[in-house]
């Protein structure tokens, strides 16, 4: 058998050493990568329904501000976070939930009743009762949340 390569003892042991070394590296390397990137890939928060309060407090035709505090966990640290939203309804059936954060530079907008508009004091942005931009620099309407009513309680989702 002149053509057959003879794998002598030394070469074989060298190969086995490389193989074991490779296995150990893989066995540590793959968990190490998942360890490093794992928390970065966790699904974003904002999947829970947040209870704001009774839907009876919402005046028809007038956006009403609701505030509540939720707990958010980042890593091992739990923080209290204030959530606020304007709830608007025409006739008490269909409800809309707006973020009160200006879509321009994240200042807080407020509802001004006698002018029938949302106003942001930072750059004089104005939104109408549907959250659409009337004037000023905002690039898009006020963000909306998913909203549902259960037992007269308002819940929003997507914060």
């Amino acid at each position: 058998m002149p053509d057959e390569k003879v794998l002598e003892r030394k070469g074989f042991l060298g190969l086995v050493t490389w193989a074991i070394g490779g296995l150990i590296s893989l066995g540590l390397g793959i968990p190490a990568i998942s360890y490093l990137i794992g928390p970065s890939l966790q699904k974003p928060e904002g999947q829970d329904w947040i209870r704001l309060g009774s839907s009876k407090k919402v005046e028809f035709g007038k956006p009403t501000l609701f505030k509540t505090t939720i707990q958010r966990q980042t890593g091992w640290i739990v923080n209290d976070e204030e959530v606020s939203a304007y709830i608007y309804t025409e006739g008490g059936r269909e409800f809309i939930a707006f973020s009160n954060i200006c879509s321009h530079l994240s200042c807080r907008v407020r509802w001004i009743d006698d002018q029938d508009q949302f106003f942001c004091p930072c750059h004089n942005a104005v939104f109408d009762r549907n959250g659409l931009v009337v004037s000023g620099p905002p690039p898009r309407p006020l963000d909306r949340y998913q909203v549902k009513i259960e037992d007269d309680q308002i819940y929003i989702q997507g914060v």
Partner: peptide
């Protein structure tokens, strides 16, 4: 992930052990 302060040392170790993928192994 580990933070060496009394506020966070224990909690960050628990976080590594129970929450981070393969953290228990590392």
């Amino acid at each position: 992930y580990y933070v060496p302060t009394p506020d966070h040392a224990y909690d960050s170790v628990q976080y590594i052990t129970t929450q981070v993928p393969a953290g228990w192994m590392i």
